[in-house]
Design a protein around this nucleic acid. Structure first.
Lengths: 193, 193
DNA sequence: ATAAAATTAGTACATTTGTTCTAAAATTAG
DNA sequence: CTAATTTTAGAACAAATGTACTAATTTTAT
């Protein structure tokens, strides 16, 4: 593995386990037995490492979204499998979600990027819900605002289920992902026809 | 105002506006024109300031909870007014929620305290839902797990609506609180009979 | 009024951290 | 094979930061 990839892998692991504030570039360098100078040759600024990792997260999400859009029809099973894949990606880059506000504050381009990604996904979700109402999967007796609020709720839960676990659950790995798969899919339950 | 109170007020303001990582004890001291030595006379450790602010948040929440429990009956209006008051308290101490994972990591007693508070509130919520099902406010056709998941959702949204706003909305003050009052009350909508 | 206690300012120290610089080593290209 | 380029190590620097220390000042108690 190239040094640059080694750095990213080590950084991801350390950030995920110890957070972005306790981990310094020296920690990362030491963990893969390279010098601080070498690390800064590959990443001039520390934040460039975080930025790169965020970009990868964004790309992996985008791939999921595009796969979803390519499907001819969206039903509950599809929604569930999409949610499962999203959870896996989010877990892989969990430090970002666990420190999302700080990451977005430290690296303004991340906030900008997230905002536009979010806006895009919001319209996508709303369109999808409309379809699911029309084809009789979802209820048709609820006022429109309720669906808008559901979208907001989904984003909050989707972005912060890991923070919630960190505070009260402390599950890890598959157990954690399975629990929140359930939590997220339960969000749709009372909306079913 | 006593110096100790001045420090806490200044810290709250600065933390809320700039986060806990950019603000140092020197910033706090300078903002109220006292020396660093004086600040550390009142708070030996920086984290003691955060700890004290968290304790106040916890107390204010406890007061709300006790007021709620003292009421003879709980209906939707009561639930809504409780949610409104919670939102105000959470906004007042918003830096804690915006950096919840880091705060809980840095100050272990906060994590411990939050966990037990959370467990207590979970049973309270579940009992309340049971009552609302029995008196016909909530639906009685849903499986029990759905209510458990609703409780989880409520905590996630309740703890992280501010982080969500920080990432995508950036509303402030009343506008912000009013929006999330709606988001939170909309969570109950599809559960109504 | 005076002694004791509490508060405050200011300095200083040790550590950490991001980053830069230089020279050596390794790799690549011609 | 040799020159150019890339990569690496290691030292060094400057700024920041939490905290301790000391002496002065203010407040409180008697």
């Amino acid at each position: 593995m190239q040094t640059k990839e080694k750095i990213l892998a080590a950084a991801l692991k350390l950030y995920n386990n110890k957070g972005i504030n306790t981990i310094t570039t020296r920690h990362i360098a030491t963990s893969i037995a390279i010098s601080p100078g070498n690390l800064h040759y590959h990443f001039k600024q520390t934040d460039d490492i975080i930025k790169t990792l965020y970009d990868r997260l964004a790309t992996e999400f985008d791939d999921l979204m595009q796969a979803l859009e390519a499907l001819p029809l969206v039903d509950l099973a599809v929604l569930r499998s999409f949610s499962r894949s999203s959870i896996e990606v989010a877990y892989k880059y969990r430090f970002i979600f666990l420190h999302f506000v700080e990451v977005a504050t430290r690296i303004p381009t991340i906030r900008t990027h997230y905002k536009s990604l979010r806006a895009r996904r919001e319209t996508e979700f709303k369109a999808m819900f409309k379809k699911l109402i029309q084809n009789g999967t979802f209820r048709n007796d609820l006022p429109g605002e309720v669906w808008d609020e559901l979208v907001t709720q989904i984003f909050i839960v989707g972005d912060f289920w890991q923070s919630n676990n960190e505070l009260s659950g402390r599950l890890t790995g598959d157990k954690l992902m399975m629990q929140y798969e359930q939590t997220i899919s339960a969000m749709f339950f009372p909306y079913l026809k």
